[in-house]
Write a protein that binds this DNA or RNA. Sequence first.
DNA 1: CTGCAATACCTAAGTTTCTTATGTATCTTT
DNA 2: AAAGATACATAAGAAACTTAGGTATTGCAG
Lengths: 113, 113
Amino acid sequence: MIYSSELIKGTLKTIVLKLLEDNGRMYGYEITQKVKDLTGDRIQITEGALYPTLHVLEEDGLLVTDVEYIGKRVRKYYRLSNEGKAKTNEKVSELRDFIGTIQFLLDLKPQNS
Amino acid sequence: MIYSSELIKGTLKTIVLKLLEDNGRMYGYEITQKVKDLTGDRIQITEGALYPTLHVLEEDGLLVTDVEYIGKRVRKYYRLSNEGKAKTNEKVSELRDFIGTIQFLLDLKPQNS
DNA sequence: CTGCAATACCTAAGTTTCTTATGTATCTTT
DNA sequence: AAAGATACATAAGAAACTTAGGTATTGCAG
């Protein structure tokens, strides 16, 4: 089962930031594969969603890049800036908190009106 | 603290369906207030987001409506159709599952490369 | 040794879905 | 009497995704 894409919306940035926090540095394609692996294929980040997101995070100063060549093939590594590290903590705790709230809503019992 | 709106995206439909499942029938304005109350103001569904969503769910056959008058003021009550009840179960369990996956990602420990 | 799949980057058009702003009207409270 | 709450609704714009491409290199199976 693959989650409907609308669920991923809104969590994509946070997931990317968290992965970079855990792994130090990663390149785009690696991120798509890592998420796929870690979630047993349930979350599949498309490249069309990921690359623009990475570019925005970089523009916002949260990520910095360095390029490496593997043979002739280019690899663009991303890692967190200091600002990005702070933002990651913010976003991760907001998401944790949000999840708690949603679980509360989902666990409510039917009201007998 | 109010959750950034991007987090709500993707969960709005499911939350609305779940509330209707619990409460039998509700009108739009009531839903916005209920969510606000239940979440201690942390999730605020705007009317600009809610009404179009309700209309879409109705068009999709998941909700049925009946109108009541409170004095001269109109109230449009929504409740789940049979199809809507099935869909609600689907969406709720998908969201529960998704939350589990996200929590797993958020709880991963940093990798010492 | 060739062709396909995987690796690796990227962008653009279109769609969905939300935000923001506005409109209308009634009811309640000060 | 005015302001805020209740209650519906829509429309323009923005954001963020999907889908569909494009380019190029590398590895592997037949």
